[in-house]
Nucleic acid binder design. Structure first.
Length: 567
RNA sequence: CGGGGCGUAGCGCAGCCUGGUAGCGCACCUGCUUUGGGAGCAGGAGGUCGCCCGUUCGAAUCGGGCCGCCCCGACCA
């Protein structure tokens, strides 16, 4: 491809609204352009990278027996009503009516459509197991897009679905994907950390996320540096401290003026925050009030809480009026004497004796509160948020927190969808059974952006050879001054192209500064410079973009090397 | 959805406070010169100043409403 004909433009200035390196560089180098919030066009260069990523994924999916197909982006809402997600998912799903007045949605993912196909197609155990996948556009109307291609609303995802006769077979399919994902990210030159993850709207029993460590990442990962534990903070567990062994003492009301916070309370009473019970309040999407109690030295983990109560429509902090309506006084609240809320108590609180808790009276707390004796929780379950330095649940070593970007995920769906939609098969023994599913995604644009995040310097992008849009950028300097330069470059370009080596040829009549700067910005693995000076020195100058190493070599040698390197 | 910011040429910005001819740099077009690190000279093209309403003799500028985009938070497979 000749740069003079390439549909692109590089920008000298950074776009004003780009914060992340990947966003800035991809826009400046002419790989992508924004159309709206979280909506991007891939220009020819960006599309080529996307296709390379797609091909790597395709090869690894095919290697574990995946069959590529394609499912629609527009779905009848009926299907999503059947699975229950039409009601469960909020405004992030785009809903509209077609001309006939029928409810339609834009695909956020494709479990429903796959399951619908199963009803038609899979009848016998002989057809299982199977893996199907496609690369298809998803639209998720996120409340806030950000970070260029990192968090968008419209994006192409590889999503695959495993179809198995039973849980044991699902384990095998799940592991196959786990391995395929490791190979995919290795080939893409992305260092992915695998963490245990929340199942979210997918339901199901087990999920892992493949995370790329990045300080701008939106997910917080809880990692044990000994390598025996890694989880998304949304579900991360810690080894909790042993509560003191004490006999329960009688409760006692004490005046605690101006102590609506745990810190103030602990200081006023001269006790550790670990001797207090903290009550926080949430309202579910369907209007239930939750009272969540954690020990004063911990915070509530909303994902755990939401999962524990099977909240519909998520959680939001409760309003003061809602708390008051349940008979509690914010700042001095506890479930004692209150009613009308679902009380969820962290297991550590349940086993800690003689805590300080609110008296539901402004300016007063209760000493020696004991769960079970003084109030009865609706649920006792782990709802604390893991903190940096907390002990690893496996080995006790201090946990560290890292930020990460989710580039892939794998979910064991089980029979959630097949049960709701009625996708069954006849087993060998003649019994009718539910198909057991798994669901596995990789966002192409996000992977692309993550590669740039991991592979760039202050001059521009440095593509790994596997995904680079072109194997090399051929640059002429001072061609108009010396016809031999143009002749040599044209010849090399022709022969490489004929040999199937994809080269980006900068044949523009631009100054050396512009052409070299652009070449570094665009990031092809090799920059081949032909100039009067290089010809005088014996051929072409080859610069390795990553290392910066340069050497002048005979053109025939450069040609042979590129040809043998494949692309 | 809460807080903050921004919308003026393809990109980056000034002008707005204090109303009166729409500007600068880069990019673009033509010519000449230049050619290994974002060249020089000369000439040129390009703008409903986000949209609507209002105030005014007159609005990019003042007021109101709306829309869009970005950042932080909330939210999120």
């Amino acid at each position: 491809m000749r740069v003079s004909k390439l549909f692109f433009t590089s920008l000298r200035d950074n776009p004003a609204d780009a914060e992340m390196a990947s966003h800035r560089l991809l826009v400046r180098a002419g790989y992508v352009r924004q159309l709206g919030a979280g909506i991007y066009s891939l220009l020819p260069l960006g599309f080529r990278v996307s296709q390379r990523i797609e091909q790597v994924i395709r090869e690894e999916m095919d290697a574990i027996g995946g069959q590529e197909m394609e499912m629609p982006v527009v779905h009848p809402a009926e299907l999503w009503k059947e699975s229950g997600r039409y009601a469960k998912i909020g405004p992030e799903m785009v809903r509209f009516k077609d001309r006939g007045g029928r409810d339609m949605v834009l695909a956020m993912t494709h479990e429903e459509v796959v399951t619908d196909l199963l009803r038609d197609i899979v009848k016998s155990y002989r057809q299982l197991p199977a893996i199907v996948y496609h690369f298809q556009t998803k639209f998720r109307d996120e409340p806030r897009a950000r970070g260029g291609l990192i968090r968008v609303r419209e994006f192409v995802m590889k999503d695959s679905y495993t179809l198995d006769p039973d849980e044991a077979a699902l384990d095998v399919s799940y592991q196959a994907h786990y391995g395929a994902y490791e190979r995919i990210f290795q080939r893409l030159d992305l260092e992915a950390v695998v963490v245990g993850a929340d199942v979210g709207i997918m339901g199901g029993s087990l999920a892992h996320e493949f995370m790329v460590l990045n300080d701008s990442g939106e997910d917080t990962l809880v990692i044990c540096e000994t390598g025996d534990y890694a989880a998304n903070q949304q579900i991360a567990m810690v080894r909790k401290p042993e509560p003191p062994v004490e006999e329960p003492r009688p409760t006692e009301e004490v005046a605690t003026p101006d102590a609506p916070t745990i810190a103030a309370l602990a200081q006023l009473l001269g006790v550790g925050e670990d001797r207090t019970a903290k009550a926080t309040f949430f309202t579910t999407g369907d209007g239930r009030l939750l009272t969540a109690i954690v020990r004063g030295d911990f915070e509530v983990n909303e994902t755990k809480l939401s999962n524990a109560v099977k909240a519909i429509g998520g959680l939001r902090p409760a309003h003061a009026e809602e708390i008051a309506a349940a008979g509690m006084v914010p700042g001095y609240a506890s479930p004692i004497g209150a009613r009308g809320s679902t009380v969820v108590v962290d297991d550590l609180v349940a086993s800690s004796p003689n805590l300080v808790a609110g008296a539901n009276k402004h300016g007063y707390h209760l000493l020696n509160v004991n769960v079970g004796r003084d109030f009865t929780p609706d649920l006792v379950v782990d709802i604390t948020n893991a903190r940096a330095g907390d002990p690893c649940p496996n080995c006790g070593a201090p946990l560290v927190l890292r930020q990460g970007i989710e580039v892939g995920n794998i979910f064991k769906l089980g029979t959630d969808f097949t049960e709701k939609l009625g996708a069954t098969y006849l087993a060998e023994d003649g019994s009718r059974r539910l198909i057991v599913m798994g669901s596995y995604g990789i966002g192409l644009g996000r992977a692309l952006a993550c590669i740039v995040e991991a592979h760039h310097d202050d001059k521009g992008i440095i593509w790994p050879a596997t995904v680079a849009p072109y194997a090399a950028q051929l640059v002429t300097l001072s061609a108009s001054r010396d016809p031999a330069v143009g002749e040599a470059a044209e010849g090399l370009y022709q022969r490489l192209t004929d040999a199937g080596v994809e080269v980006l040829y900068d044949d523009r009549d631009e100054s050396p500064g512009v052409k070299l700067t652009d070449a570094e910005l665009l990031g092809m693995p090799r920059i081949i410079t032909i100039s009067p000076r290089s010809l005088a020195a014996g051929g072409a100058e080859v610069t390795d973009r990553a290392s910066g190493e340069r050497s002048v070599r005979p053109i025939a040698e450069v040609e042979a090397e590129l040809a043998s390197a494949g692309r």
